[in-house]
Amino acid sequence: MSGDIPSEKASLDGPAVPDGGPALRPNPLAHLPIPFQVVDYAERGVHLDASVAPDQVVAVAGELDKSGFAIDTITGVDWLAEGQMEVVYDFFHPTQRLRVAVRTRVPREHPEVPTISTVFPGANWHERETHDFFGIRFAGHPDLTPFLLPEDATYHPLRKDFNP
């Protein structure tokens, strides 16, 4: 497991700083083709946050995989008023003090993003769960049958227009 992150500040061997320390400046992942914004960890709980186009998520996950990141979780947010679904990908680094989030938005009528389970096998269950709860389809996913919901479930309970 090796990450080529040129930042001594982020190393886990350094002294522990409360609240993850100050915002990492400059962006330690600036060498990657990912549009990361540096955010204040103490305020937000992540160091870097990026919004990308839906067709970019596999390439972004591939870059983070090469940099030694681990898959943290994947989830959705239903922005009903804006007619959009957001998919949020979280990653953590096992040996560096670095937390990143990547997000993308898809139209609500056609919520589909490519799967990243080809890059991180751990994404498989998180994507299945996101499909359960939001009805977001992950193109290329090996098995989008209900994961936590009953096997005959046809509803998506975390959609904001869901009425039980």
């Binding site: 497991m1 990141f69 681990a70 898959i71 979780t73 096992p94 991180f120 096998p121 751990g122």
Partner: peptide
């Protein structure tokens, strides 16, 4: 360790 990383 690699498997842990790929599965989180």
């Amino acid at each position: 360790a690699e498997m842990c990383r790929r599965y989180g």
